[in-house]
Structure formats: structure tokens, C-alpha cells
Design a protein around this nucleic acid. Structure first.
Lengths: 258, 258
DNA sequence: TCAAAAGTGTTCGCTATACACCCATGG
DNA sequence: CCATGGGTGTATAGCGAACACTTTTGA
């Protein structure tokens, strides 16, 4: 069913590859049938007070030189696609996301003008606090999801699919917390959900719904007040209880829907 | 960013490839860096009265000779992955599914003992009536999902993921109809949902829920009876109104959840 | 002939929705 | 000081869950 492994043959090769070199410059890999190149691309999201943002990198070479694109690169033979996505992200932006998930593989024949390239695409989430300081004045830049520049290759399409996948996911799983700090307020959480789902919720119903899930606990720093106090209290912060969530999930007691 | 296209070089190559030949036997494809092989695999489902089934093929060669595996094969340079999956399915089983969807790409380094192979996996749905007759006594065979034999490579894992993807999908989209005939009864539909979701529903609530969606219409062949008739009527058949569903979907009026 | 399956209708309780008040916060 | 935002409580409607009876179906 499957092709015999291509021989490593020592043969002079013309053309200058821009692939990250792994070892011997003189080695050429030959196959009896053409193999596509395999890359990963990563759509990494970050939430900033009000807006959902994605990280883009300005391409330094043709094609699409000086056009924005998602970070990514070639799959190496000794790493899985997810490892590749994380490695490229770290190399190009020095970021390590708190959450990453594969969402689609793009295989259209002409998606790269140079050669056949298929791309295994991931979306990732990172906290704002994990981003600050990592800015090494590189070609990477955060853009509001609502206001993206033109993108290279089929990355417009990839982005659409990434956003859809993120929406789908957050509909049923509490992954939003990977975009917030350890402690957050309910309104913050609500703004996040509204930004991602592009919707509006009633404050009180949103709060009730989230608290009823039983996966949030009050911060220890919240100001305590007398039992008979009236009106609103000081701003409260909350924490996501991962353990409780996993426990409920394994017992099939968890149900979330937006 | 990306590697220069591998030169086609006319060079004698040893080793016998089992890849479907595309053209010249003497041509060898060379790259400065190793490329993984890219295949597609397809988990095709069929529903038979009570049971959900998947199609497997007995492997004719090593490794995993005589072990069951999902149909699939190598991606060609002039086809997308979905085209590849459909082509392989047709070549190996002469089937054409009514629905197909990519659900995951498997990239673990050691998933194939011979060489680095990544597999873009699809799940597909086909009606029972489109299967019968296509049986050319080949190595293909349907198995109950509840009673699968040991599978080759990481196909156990692929199957798990496929089933999860199917469940997820049918939770919110009416794709079940691609597993039923044009006309079907509500109990049939219920058995299908119960088989896929591995759950049990109340007959009356299930019926109410489905009919309230507004995407089903009665068959013209249903027996009409007097308005004042009591008790149950003759068995009814229904049809899925695709147009209505698409219309509701574009207007965001469609909402289904199980 | 009779057990199993399938069509039909009603009640009840919960939860999603809609909505009002008070006060901390910060310019 | 005041506009904005954030904490808290209640009333209602609609939907999902639980449930019984009758007749058709087919072994």
C-alpha cells in the first residue's frame, strides 16, 4: 500500500533551500514519486481587555514578500505536527501558548504558487501576561481580529476556519480561561465570550449561568462584607477550578452551551 | 520560508515502490530535505436497521498483512486531500458517499513502521441502498461499530477520533439523513441517533423535537385518515427538506442539540 | 392471536430570558 | 460629583422530561 522509503543519495543539488538545515548539506532525499511539502501554521489568539487579537508575521521573502501571514514552517522528520507548530511559534515569536489544537489541514493543489504544500493548521490561546516582554521587536505583530490586513497565500481562509473552530470549541468547553489571567472578573469573562462569539449576553444571566456550572471559585483576596449588607459589593475576582471541571467531565456532569 | 521545489532528476532508482504509478518509471523526485509521505484514510459509516457499521479492508501486504484497516492511499500531486479520499474509496470499494468531512490529521512520528507517513483522515456517510450491489467480493467488509476486529497501524485511535467527530457533528447538524433512505420513519431516525450517540431517548419527546425543527415533511404516500379518527395511524414516512434547512441555517434560525 | 412497535396528547418542573435596583469605581 | 460599570434578586414564559392509551404490525 505504501511507498518504500526514499533513499538518501549523496548527490549534488542545485537551488538554494531556505529550509532550516538539519545536518548534512550534501544529502539529497529522493523518492520514486513526488511528495508534497508539509508545513504547520498556527493562528494564535490573545485577548486584550475588549478585543480578540491574532499574531501575524511579515514575510521576508517571495512570494508574498512583506505580506502578513501566520507563523509556521516545515515539519521535520522527528517531530509530530503539534511539536512542529509549537517549535515554529517559539522560534518565530518566542511564545508558548497555554492551549493548542489542530483544526484543519489545507491541501488545495495551488495554495502555494511555488510547489505543492499542505498545511496542518492549529489554533492556540495565550494569556496577555505571557505575551508582554516577549516582544523582541521582530516582524511579529498583534492585530485585532476585527481589523486584519490582507494575508498571504490562503491564510484568509485559514483564519476564517480558525475562528469558526474557536467558536465551536468555546461553545462547549471552558477554554476561555486560557485567554485570561489566573484571576478575572465575570464581566471580563463575558467580554471575552462576546468578542469571540460576536454576540451580546445579559449580564445577570451570563453570571448566573457561569456560576451555576460550578467550575469557578472566588478569589481569596475578595473583600468580605457583612451578611446583611445591601447593594453591590466590591469588584470580585474569580478563578477557574480545573480539577473540578475535569472531575465533572469524567462523570459526564458537565454541560455548557452558548 | 519554504523549500525550493525539488528537482525532477532522471536517475536510476533502486527499490520497488508499491505506490500507484502516475507516469514515468525512470523519474526520481529529489529534495534537499526529507519529505514525509502523505496519505488519506477514510472511515465510512453505514446504518443498518439497528447498527452503525464501518467499512474495513484487509491488507494484502506487510506490515499488518491480513489485518483490517480503513481504506485510503497516497495523495497525488494534482488532487486535494478530499479528492484523494474519494478516489481511493472508489478504487478500493467502488463506493461514493453522500457526505464526507475531514476530521483530523495524524502525524505521530512512528505511526508507520516503514517510513514517516502522515494521514489526513475523513469520515463519510453512505446510505444502505447505495452500498448494496457494490459488493464485488473484494477484501472490503462492513463491521459493526460495537464489534470491531483489531486494526492496523494507529487505526484504532483514528476510529475513536472519527466516532467522536461524528457524534460532535450530529449533535448540531442534521447529517443523519445521509445514512437513511430518502423516506424514513421517525423511529428509524431515533434508532440511528441512539446508535451513534450511544444513548436512549423517549419516543414521544424525540418525535416532538425533530418535528419542531421544521425540516421534515410527510411522505406523499402516507395513508390519510379521517380527522376524527382515534388512536395511532398507519406507519408514517418522512423526508428531510434540505432547502428548508439551508434557508433556516443562513437565517440563523436553526438550532439543534442532543 | 398476541406481543411488540408506533402514532398521539398532557402535565409538570426547571431553566433560559427579560428586567430593576443599588452602590462601588474612577475620571 | 456624576456617569459608567458591576454586584444582586425576581417574575415569567417556553421548552424539555416524564408519562398512558390506542391501534397497527407482523411473527
Amino acid at each position: 500500500m505504501q511507498e518504500k522509503k526514499g533513499k538518501k543519495s549523496v548527490e549534488a543539488a542545485s537551488g538554494n533551500a531556505t529550509h532550516e538545515n538539519e545536518q548534512n548539506e550534501e544529502v539529497v532525499y529522493s523518492y520514486k514519486h513526488p511528495h508534497p511539502s508539509v508545513t504547520t501554521d498556527c493562528v494564535i489568539f490573545c485577548f486584550d481587555k475588549k478585543d480578540l487579537n491574532v499574531l501575524l508575521i511579515k514575510r521576508g521573502i517571495e512570494p508574498f514578500k512583506d505580506t502578513w501571514a501566520f507563523p509556521g514552517g516545515f515539519l521535520r522528520m522527528n517531530e509530530s505536527a503539534e511539536e512542529c507548530a509549537l517549535r515554529e511559534l517559539k522560534e518565530e515569536t518566542s511564545l508558548t501558548p497555554g492551549y493548542i489544537e489542530q483544526f484543519h489541514t489545507f491541501t488545495e493543489v495551488d495554495r502555494d504558487p511555488r510547489e505543492r504544500v499542505i498545511s496542518i493548521a492549529y489554533f492556540a490561546l495565550i494569556k496577555k501576561s505571557d505575551v508582554e516582554g516577549g516582544d523582541d521587536a521582530s516582524e511579529a505583530q498583534w492585530f485585532k481580529v476585527k481589523d486584519l490586513p490582507p494575508l498571504a497565500f490562503d491564510h484568509d481562509y485559514i483564519f476564517k476556519k480558525a475562528l469558526t473552530a474557536l467558536k465551536q470549541k468555546i461553545h462547549f468547553e471552558p477554554i476561555g480561561f486560557d485567554l485570561l489571567e489566573e484571576e478575572f472578573s465575570i464581566p471580563e469573562l463575558q467580554r471575552l465570550y462576546e468578542a469571540i462569539l460576536n454576540a451580546h449576553f445579559d449580564r445577570r444571566n451570563f453570571q448566573k449561568k457561569l456560576l451555576q456550572l460550578g467550575i469557578l471559585e472566588e478569589s481569596k483576596h475578595n473583600v468580605k462584607r457583612k451578611a446583611n449588607a445591601k447593594g453591590r459589593s466590591k469588584n470580585k475576582k474569580w478563578r477557574f477550578i480545573l480539577k473540578k471541571y475535569e472531575e465533572m467531565k469524567t462523570n459526564h456532569q458537565f454541560r455548557l452551551e452558548f
